[in-house]
């Protein structure tokens, strides 16, 4: 994820979530979104079948 892409994600999410981001906090948020994107790429590097469910299991 490029810096511009992370900034676009931040702006869109901030609007959708009514979550204002102070100008002073924007560089840190962008850097953390880019770090998260690298982590997500690792997670997505392993193909899972449709039958592989999330770890948390709800028990009524």
């Amino acid at each position: 994820m490029t810096e511009d892409q992370a900034e676009a994600l931040m702006n869109a999410a901030a609007t959708a979530l009514s979550l204002p981001v102070d100008p002073a906090h924007r560089p840190g948020v962008i850097a953390n979104l880019r770090l998260a994107a690298r982590m997500a790429a690792l997670v997505e590097g392993k193909a899972l079948t449709v039958h592989q469910e999330p770890a948390p299991v709800y028990r009524p």
Binding site: L9, M10, A13, A14, L17, L19, V21, H25, G28, V29, A31, N32, L33, A36, M39, A40, V43, E44, K46, L48, Q52, E53, P54, A55, P56
Partner: peptide
């Protein structure tokens, strides 16, 4: 300041990443 930007970014993560992380976790 040591936590704030991570919390803010965390609140913005695409749901797909997080759900995939929970599925990967089980695997």
């Amino acid at each position: 300041p040591g936590t704030r930007d991570r919390f803010l970014a965390g609140a913005m993560l695409p749901a797909h990443w997080v759900t995939q992380a929970q599925r990967l976790r089980a695997d």
